[in-house]
Design a protein around this nucleic acid. Structure first.
Lengths: 346, 346
DNA sequence: TTGTAGGCGTTATCAT
DNA sequence: ATGATAACGCCTACAA
């Protein structure tokens, strides 16, 4: 009785193995593999056949060491919720077309993890980075260092104004304007804003849009109507309860994301507040869940997939041009999806 | 007027730069950096300081070429929906603890993309792969080749019985048993199964559980009550309409996933079928959306995060042991979450 | 304790 | 048309 044995593992064939098998030099193999015109046709055939037989695949690691390119893009996102998963698909799609492999890491909304991810990816010599900044990120030095080295970088969605780099983002201000204008049209006058972490550009840009719209319509603004909370259903739930227990009760809530809107909805349900009659509600992101809620949730849609594609597009362009090009900021248009949660029958 | 100029990009420092700056050899630097005991303390200090100043980070690509290890795991998933995103987080978490970087690729349920992803990751010399098989995958040769080379591989969720490798999966049969038994308890007798693609193990294992339970209760089984469709709301919607228009109408539907259950729910709503009174409904995966639907959706929960962690655990164990170990299959327990969609008031 | 030389798999340069 | 050789950045003998 012999011990169970698996097929003997064979190390991957190298260019040397192919050369030796044919009794020729590795340079010829290299040239044949890459389709250089100068190599004799019969030689080429022989090389290709032997490579096939030996299942020879060029070692990308060795190649990268020489060329300084890995044909890979490191992507760092705070999480993989619906929005980011969709954006990553967009990045992925264009990247593949352009011959790049996408390596996705999650920072988990952690500053430390973001730094670790950044460093590991860079040390693994990805050709560059596409990043959406974590909500906990307090300093941008880890990115600045790379930008200084001209490592190609594109930021998307959660960008920072101080960073000189290519960016793709939503016109967050306009998204808020659409949402709040709509609520005002529906007769709402005391509109609250359930914001995300104060550190995030998207939180604040949407806040500006919210404030601007209120002012434009001559509506009062109050700090009590602006509540910050984490991107998390539970936090949103509690924040909403605080809002309901405040001195003045709002007649509408605009939230920075659908996930937060859901937390709000649960709180409202529990308190027996009718939506939209007592309090109208508008979310942000237009996740598929929005249309499935009862009442269905009005939400500001953003083109996540396209945002990803464009980010990858900018990245590839930056890679391919050796001249120094000015940084671009692409701003995408939001679209308000009106549903039951904000439609008042009059 | 001069053209705008950015700070001059500096190439990353190499071990040579550090050595040269100190007038010592690179081997000493190498040893000092890695904390070898034999190196003189003053030398070590000097090296560390200079490395810091020059911002020297070892080039992982060069390192990999020597060591044959990249300390990275390639993960291939069909998509990044809630289940897979959660599982990837689980993989990520354990991998980071163990010092690995996770590179996630989506096959987009495409056989070709799965092959491409596999090849690219392997050519980039990831240390191994953690895979959930795409629904379109028709041959497993691309994986078999790697297994033969003893490339560490772990399959999860969508596994294949013919593959000799480590696996983590749900007890799908039991999940179906729980769901169907529950429906029978609720008085349902004509229970239909809305299955996913027939090529998938999870579809079929759940089908076996469904059939087994019906037989055990002496309930008739009928092919008309088993409908396959893509993992997609739209397909599920149409499949449900077909089901409703069949000769005999079911009084319950068990679905292979929540996404499909949602498609079914929309079809039922549109036809004015009351859930659960006319037709009870049970989904699979227990996505967060399940509890938010109206009626809230009963669903078989699976520990996605834990599944990911265990997959990574198996991977790391396989990496760290040089003896040939038998392949393991870890089977996790499902839990039925009962909600309104299947609870009949009697 | 430190330095030298060879090698990892590939490409590029210069010969032949 | 093909081959030899240096180089990429690092590690691991082995030598000093």
């Amino acid at each position: 009785m012999t011990a169970p044995r698996r097929a003997r593992p064979s190390k991957p064939a190298t260019i040397k193995d192919v050369a030796r098998a044919l009794g020729i030099s590795i340079s010829t193999v290299s040239r044949a593999m890459r389709g250089f015109p100068e190599v004799n046709n019969e030689t080429r055939q022989a090389v290709l056949r032997t490579a096939e037989e030996l299942d020879y695949q060029p070692n990308q690691v060795a190649l990268s060491l020489v060329t300084k390119h890995t044909h890979s893009i490191g992507v760092i996102v705070p999480n993989l919720d619906y929005f980011f998963a969709t954006a990553v698909r967009g990045i992925d799609e264009l990247a593949i077309e352009a011959g790049y492999t996408v390596l996705t890491c999650q920072s988990n909304e952690s500053y430390g993890r973001e730094i670790t991810n950044t460093q590991r990816l860079v040390n693994s010599r990805v050709d560059g980075l596409i990043v959406s900044i974590s909500s906990a990120t307090s300093s941008l030095d880890h990115f600045r260092r790379l930008l200084q080295r001209e490592v190609p970088m594109v930021f998307f969605d959660r960008v920072n104004a101080d960073l000189e780099a290519n960016k793709v983002m939503l016109h967050n201000y306009d998204g808020a304007v659409q949402a709040v204008s709509h609520l005002i049209e529906q007769g709402c006058r005391r509109i609250a804003y359930l914001a995300g972490p104060a550190s995030l550009s998207i939180s604040n840009q949407r806040k500006e849009g919210y404030l601007g719209t209120l002012r434009q319509h001559g509506l009062p603004v109050s700090d009590d109507f602006i509540v910050h909370c984490e991107f998390d259903r539970e936090h949103a739930y509690r924040a909403t309860l605080r809002l309901l227990d405040g001195a003045e009760r709002p007649d509408a809530i605009f939230t920075v994301s659908d996930r937060i809107a859901i937390g709000a909805l649960l709180a409202l349900r529990e308190r027996g507040v009718r939506v939209p009659d007592d309090i109208a509600l508008v979310g942000f992101n237009d996740e598929p869940v929005a249309s499935l809620l009862t009442p269905s949730l009005s939400s500001v849609a953003q083109p996540a997939f396209e945002m990803g594609r464009i980010a990858a597009q900018l990245f590839v362009e930056q890679m391919n041009s050796d001249e120094i090009r000015p940084y671009q900021t692409v701003v995408l248009k939001p679209t308000l999806m009106v549903r039951e949660s904000s439609l008042r029958r009059r």
